[in-house]
């Protein structure tokens, strides 16, 4: 039962939303799918005085194809992303990550913008976006006298997360969209996402996204990104210069990249580290298999 009073506004123009957010940034929370914020309010963990709902703002929704990227509006739901043909074609890694968020009802309602801005280190999207080098489009009200002036900036995903559930968004600034660079064709690039949780719909203990490609030299290159192990997701470049990775090589690279892993009641630090290594390596293995399959089918 939500105890604290608040007012709720649901503007249809972005400028109005940003103005409302800028008016009292500390007391205002933007609302999107509500799958995290509403339970947090019910549990008494969050008590905003103002809620600004972003769902009815056209600029923040929709999925659009750009020449080199797919622009996914912040209010696109996990279900939209998991099933959209353009995302499936150009960013299947992200679609796979979306398909494994929570359960059907959560995917029908929860949004990518909300997930990114909440920055829970275990959220499925974060490693996928990190592996894909996504760019966050952030919007805020511009200072000064112009009532409807807004400012937009693009933040590479690698610079977006500032700490545990913390981002570099300024007060009153929101995630407006994510630009996800198009993956290469399956003949040139393999990708895989892995989620490890106690039960399938739970928040993961760790999740991993891998992206590998064969370079013209025949050598493999790629990266694996891990969520849930550290306060922010971490991207690990895989050792280059070889046609394949030796057994244990990926695990070692992951272990080295993760210093001081988090712990909680579901997983202590050393176990979490090991799971990051195991599932990261499995994601890489699956990505390599996908690449092999792609090459064969070419």
């Amino acid at each position: 039962m939500i105890a604290e009073r608040f007012d709720y506004q649901s503007p249809t123009r972005l400028a109005d939303a940003l103005r409302l957010l800028a008016a009292d940034p500390d007391g205002t929370r933007p609302l999107s799918g509500g799958m995290t914020l509403v339970p947090m309010m019910t549990l008494g963990l969050a008590a905003p005085e103002h809620i600004v709902d972003l769902k009815r703002i056209p600029e923040l929704g929709g999925i659009h194809e750009e020449p080199d990227a797919v622009r996914i509006g912040a209010t696109a739901t996990h279900h939209d992303i998991a099933t959209d043909p353009r995302v499936r074609l150009h960013a299947p890694l992200l679609a796979d990550a979306a398909a494994l968020v929570g359960d059907v009802q959560v995917r029908n309602r929860g949004t990518i913008g909300g997930s990114i801005a909440h920055a829970d280190p275990a959220a499925n999207y974060l490693p996928a976006l990190l592996a894909l080098d996504a760019v966050i489009e952030a919007r805020a009200k511009r200072g000064g006298l112009l009532r409807n002036a807004t400012r937009s900036r693009r933040i590479p995903i690698g610079e977006f997360f500032a700490g545990l559930m913390a981002t570099c968004l300024a007060a009153g600034e929101i995630v407006a969209a994510v630009h996800v660079p198009k993956q290469l064709a399956a003949t040139h690039q393999g990708a895989a996402f892995r989620k490890f949780a106690r039960v399938k719909g739970n928040f993961p203990i760790v999740c991993a996204a891998a992206l590998v490609e064969r370079q013209s030299s025949g050598e493999r290159a790629g990266c694996v990104a891990i969520g849930g192990a550290l306060p922010i997701p971490v991207r690990i470049a895989l050792p280059g210069g070889q046609a394949a990775w030796a057994a244990g090589e990926v695990e070692t690279a992951i272990r080295q990249a993760i210093d001081d892993p988090m712990s909680d009641a579901n997983a202590s630090a050393d176990y979490r580290l090991e799971m990051a290594a195991v599932h990261g390596a499995r994601a890489v293995e699956a990505a390599c298999r996908a690449l092999d399959d792609g090459e064969r089918s070419a």
Partner: peptide, 16 residues
């Protein structure tokens, strides 16, 4: 008590 919600007290679903 550290497990006061169904997010932390894990129950099997149809999948499990």
């Amino acid at each position: 008590l550290l497990t006061t919600t169904l997010m932390d007290y894990t129950l099997p679903t149809a999948v499990e």
